[in-house]
């Protein structure tokens, strides 16, 4: 799968000159290149960000919900009546053209996350820029009680059975970070695809869990009508020995595969999906997701966004 992912990401870049943007129209010679229309229906695509940033002074309210695992079948209506895996409420505000700042609070570890998204380059209809380039950064604060951190002990020796020592609590232990470079392209009216690379860092992790993780991501949208689309994403935490602190990869986080249906209007986007991510904020998924989509580790979820313009 990783090999397929690598080939796919590479082919996306090489395919750029091959696939024509069918939206391209003969523009007047001196006209400023215009960004492609609606490369995505929303700034969110299931568990990922897209290049979409709305007009300046737009406020977006986001509700993200992941139900329980489907593995119990009818007994809890495929997880719909089970305790939710995760819930996140967020607000995003567009500060200036192509720059958005956001905040959200999640059920998992009561994360408070502060994020910033900048679409550096937009894909243009004239093909002067064949792809969109977006940077996304997220800083999260673990919001659990101080006692949780105080009660933890750490083994700093190279021997896994070495002595455990207690460390005094420091606020920095709560911090985690996620940064991502997203390159996307709207190939035609019905197909948009994006590939991304990410870096996750936690200041404090459990034993056998790395502090850093590099990830590869692919997401896409297949439009069925002006308002509805099939959407998907695949997020793979990579096994890179050079940045790992472990002798071998034990409990390596599982990739997240999700497939959903999206409906978008002027002011709303609604995505209903089934996927294997256990949480909503990306750094948690990249380091701790243990849901295996090949082994029933799937859950139904939804994303609802509401926009207000000021």
């Amino acid at each position: 799968m990783k090999r397929f992912l690598s080939i796919f990401i590479c082919s996306l870049f090489f395919a750029i000159p091959v696939f024509g943007q069918d939206e391209t129209e003969e523009a007047p010679v001196k006209q400023k290149p215009r960004p492609v229309r609606s490369p995505w229906s929303s700034g969110l695509l299931i568990d990922n960000q897209t290049s979409v940033i709305y007009s300046p002074k737009t406020l977006e309210f986001v509700i993200q919900h992941k139900f329980g695992s489907v593995e119990n079948g009818r007994s809890d209506l495929f997880g719909l009546y089970a305790p939710a895996h995760d819930i996140r409420l967020g607000l995003n505000y567009v500060i200036m053209r192509n720059v958005q700042a956001g905040w959200g609070i999640s059920k998992t570890k009561m994360y408070n996350d502060f994020n910033l998204k900048w679409t550096v380059f937009e894909q243009t209809r004239e093909e002067t820029m064949p792809v969109s380039v977006t940077l996304f950064g997220n800083m999260a604060i673990d919001g659990r009680s101080k006692e949780f951190f105080e009660s933890r002990k750490y083994n700093h020796s190279s021997d896994p059975d070495g002595p455990f020592t207690e460390h005094p609590y420091r606020f920095g232990q709560r911090m985690s970070y996620f940064s991502q470079l997203i390159i996307g392209r709207k190939f035609n009216e019905w197909l948009s695809v994006q590939a991304a690379a990410s870096f996750t860092h936690y200041n404090l992790t459990e034993r056998n869990v790395d502090h850093d993780k590099i990830g590869a991501h692919v997401s896409g949208r297949v439009k069925l009508s002006p308002q509805s689309s099939i959407v998907f994403n695949y997020d793979a935490p990579l096994k890179i020995k050079d940045i790992s602190e472990q002798r071998e990869f034990i409990n390596h986080p599982k990739p997240n595969l999700a497939l959903g249906w999206e409906v978008a209007t002027s002011t709303h986007a609604f995505q209903m999906y089934i996927g294997s991510a256990g949480s909503i904020i990306p750094q948690e998924n990249m380091l701790y997701n243990q849901n295996d989509w090949q082994d029933g580790g799937l859950a139904v979820g939804f994303v609802i966004t509401r926009l207000w313009n000021f």
């Binding site: 129209e25 229309r37 009216e189 009508s225 002006p226 308002q227 978008a264 209007t265 002027s266």
Partner: peptide, 17 residues
Amino acid sequence: ASLEKLGKAAWAKHCRS
């Protein structure tokens, strides 16, 4: 006439409801 498809898509998204 080339904008017909675009107009219909925008109408469905923003105006039809």
